[in-house]
């Protein structure tokens, strides 16, 4: 069963088509990779899906419900949560408080929220930084904090926007393992990533976007064998 369906979504900024006629669907529990060169429109697509932009055309359906026109907070409450490529820590709040804000999406009790937050902080292995201010964390830990905060909202589907960007190989490996852990919990994931090795390893299916349009879709093996994808990344000479 498809938990997320993107149907003919287009997004125009004036005359510029950041996304045009993009369609794909994500099955419950799978990891879907979303790749494409810089400026291809991946983050815009995330923004259209999560309510930050209303799509100019097309339809987004999540869990059998039409999402067009819903505000981001509603989207989150319905069980679809996203991280930010440019991380957005709540700088003057502690790591635990950051994650608690996410947990408070589902409860009014601070005590319950604290328990949920502790659990998620442990999942991303930040428990040694519990009382540190989020603004003072190095980039790798900020990315982990983003993931913990999103998981604390108890989502059915998460959209991870380049959580490995700017990390060293050891940190990336940790996050790859984290993505596998999230899958084990039955949470569906859509992952934007530039690290090809990583995305080929984690994704069950991949959608390739170029200049706002869907270029290809398939399993990682099919994608690497598609000439158009190779051309988009390396130029047609190769």
């Amino acid at each position: 069963m498809a938990i997320l369906e993107v149907k003919n979504v287009s997004k125009f900024f004036g005359g510029l088509a950041a996304n045009s006629d993009v369609s794909f669907s994500v099955e419950q529990g799978m990891i879907m990779g979303l790749i494409g060169p810089n400026g291809a429109g991946k983050t815009t697509l995330f923004n259209c899906i999560t309510g930050y932009y209303p799509p100019s055309r097309g339809e987004v359906t999540f869990d059998g419900r039409r999402m067009n026109g819903l505000q981001p907070d509603k989207v989150c409450k319905l069980g679809m949560a996203r991280t930010w490529q440019k991380v957005r820590p709540l700088a003057k709040m502690s790591v635990l408080d950051n994650v608690m804000v996410g947990a408070l999406c589902r409860t009014n009790s601070l005590k319950v929220a604290r328990d949920v937050a502790m659990e998620q902080v442990k999942v991303v292995r930040l428990e040694h930084k519990l009382n540190f201010l989020a603004g003072g964390l190095p980039i790798g830990e900020r990315k982990k904090l983003e993931v913990a905060r999103v998981l604390a909202t108890r989502p059915k589907l998460v959209l991870l926007d380049e959580i490995m960007g700017g990390l060293n190989p050891a940190e990336s490996e940790e996050l790859i393992q984290l993505i596998f852990d999230i899958k084990k919990d039955g949470i569906t994931q859509v992952v934007i990533e530039h690290d090809m090795k990583a995305i080929m390893r984690i994704s069950e299916r991949i959608v390739v976007i170029n200049s706002g349009e869907k270029l290809a879709e398939g399993t990682p093996a099919e994608i690497v064998a598609t000439p158009e994808v190779v051309a988009a990344y390396l130029g047609s000479e190769h």
């Binding site: 981001p72 957005r88 709540l90 804000v101 408070l104 601070l110």
Partner: peptide
């Protein structure tokens, strides 16, 4: 300060878009 309100207010202060994405109605 000791309730959900305090957490949500501070989240809005620190980053409105992040707060919005975490289910907080601005």
């Amino acid at each position: 300060e000791h309730s959900k309100l305090g957490y949500f207010f501070q989240a809005i202060r620190e980053d409105q878009d992040a707060a919005h994405s975490l289910g907080i109605s601005l």
